[in-house]
Amino acid sequence: MLQIVFDSLSLGSLYALGALGIALIFGVMRLVNFAHGDVIAFSIFALLWPSTDAMAIVFAGQLPWYLLIPFVLLVGAGLSVLCEIVVFRRFRRANPATMMIASFALGFVIRYFLLMLFTSRPKSISLLPMLSQPVEIFGARLPLLQLITIIATVIILIGLTLFLRRTRFGLEMRAAAENFSMARMLGIRANRVIMGAFALSGALAGAIAMIFGSQTGTVDIQMGASIMLMAFIATVIGGLGSLAGAVLAGFLLGAASVIMQVVLPVDARPFRDAFVYGAVILVLLFRPQGLIAARGTKERV
């Protein structure tokens, strides 16, 4: 029982962090960033040396953990900011559909860039191997990693909340999310806020990459896609643009996946994700605006 709780919390953490990364960018520029999943994949591949072998040649991955973690986060943030400067800045005035397609294309470019360097074969990698030992808590044996995932997520969430609530930059970002043109008129620099949002979102992508990479022990150029899909769905269920909603919905999706894995009969288990998507559509039937509807997303006339 406790095992289920921890499983769903740690899966939910991944989805929540992903959803947060997407919701942050959506909040400030109404961009649904389809390249997010590929930023996740990229930040983990940055640890490897380009090769076509199945066994990964670790390059930066041998750093001690206190350097490794900042490195991955920085790679994610850097790539994300680069995407903003090179691509998304050109689309500030475009309508959301055009931006969405552009981000889709950008994600494609990043993915095939990785494919060119690393081929499409999944590679095995052991990141932070000391985390895979089990620990015993309240009579349940869990991998230490699961515990750390949950703790790290909680720390990230608290940190982000403090950042958004207590710092000037956080205030600017929240103001921009609420009403972008009004915020600009009151003297908030658009470029700075948007780049800040991209950097945060990229760092979150790096965090997901770390957690996911050490959980599965393999890296794959497709690995971002499945998390990203769930994260997108979480942002929609949570209410587009609402950060709290995104996190809540991420944890709910994680819980739903784990519970269905346990409850469903064995024959139906491969279809778990289909059931989760079906449940999502049902939720949207009853709350089309999401669980927590954000202010400022509804178009004013």
Binding site: R30, V32, P96, A97, M100, L229, F232, I233, T235, V236, L240, P270, F271, D273, A274, Y277, G278, V280, I281, L284, L285, P288, Q289, G290
Partner: peptide, 25 residues
């Protein structure tokens, strides 16, 4: 019937769920 009740962007992402659902099945 279900999806068209959503607003534009939410509907777009929900159609993604349909694609993934059909693919999983």
């Amino acid at each position: 019937k279900v999806l068209m009740r959503l607003s534009g962007i939410a509907a777009s992402i929900a159609t993604f769920a349909v694609l993934a659902m059909i693919n999983t099945i």
